[in-house]
Structure formats: structure tokens, C-alpha cells
């Protein structure tokens, strides 16, 4: 199990589209993925969970991945936060 803190940087926060992107990415890994924020723990593969975090710009979240592919999963998810939830261009 590994953890990392991130800060939401896009101006609108994790609204519908970023939440979809995050859930889709997280669901592509076998590892469990949880987000901790203000004492809540939510399943990062649940779109309703992610949305109802209501994470605005500047919010600090702690991400947790556990499972066989936890390293790559966490890395990819952190990257998604860093590029403000825009689409991948990993061509």
C-alpha cells in the first residue's frame, strides 16, 4: 500500500468531467484506490464518491493505492492531477 498527497489545481475543481476521467483511469488498474479528504475515505473507482468529495481548486487530497500494480497506478493518477485532468497524449 502506498500513499501520496496531491493538490487540486484546475480552477473548477473535480467536477463531472475530471471525475469521469479519474474514475476511468483508476478502474483500469487492478489495485484498490481510495481518496482521503476531510476525514472522509471514498472509493476512487466510484464516480459518485469522487464527485461528492466536492474537491475544489486548492483542496488537498491523500491518494492511496494498494495491489499488485499500485506503483504504476498511483504514478498515473498523480500525473492526471498534475495535468489538470486533461486527456492523455501518450502517443
Amino acid at each position: 500500500m502506498i500513499r501520496k498527497k496531491v493538490i487540486v489545481k484546475n480552477p473548477e475543481g473535480i467536477h463531472a468531467r475530471p471525475a469521469s476521467a479519474l474514475v476511468k483511469l483508476a478502474s483500469s488498474f487492478n489495485s484498490d484506490f481510495y481518496i482521503y479528504s476531510h476525514g472522509y475515505k471514498i472509493n476512487g473507482k466510484s464516480i459518485l464518491g469522487v464527485l461528492t468529495l466536492a474537491a475544489e481548486c486548492g483542496a488537498e487530497l491523500e491518494l492511496e493505492c494498494s495491489g499488485e500494480d499500485e506503483k504504476i497506478a498511483l504514478q498515473r493518477i498523480v500525473e492526471l492531477f498534475e495535468r489538470n485532468f486533461t486527456d492523455t497524449t501518450d502517443k
Binding site: A16, S20, K24, K45, S46, I47, L48
Partner: peptide, 14 residues
């Protein structure tokens, strides 16, 4: 975007 979001909800495991 709303449609895509709503379809995503239908897949929510929780």
C-alpha cells in the same frame, strides 16, 4: 458531457 457523466454513474460499483 452530462450524458457521458450519467452513463458513468450507471457503472458506479459502490
Amino acid at each position: 458531457e452530462i450524458l457521458a457523466f450519467q452513463r458513468e454513474i450507471l457503472k458506479d460499483p459502490d
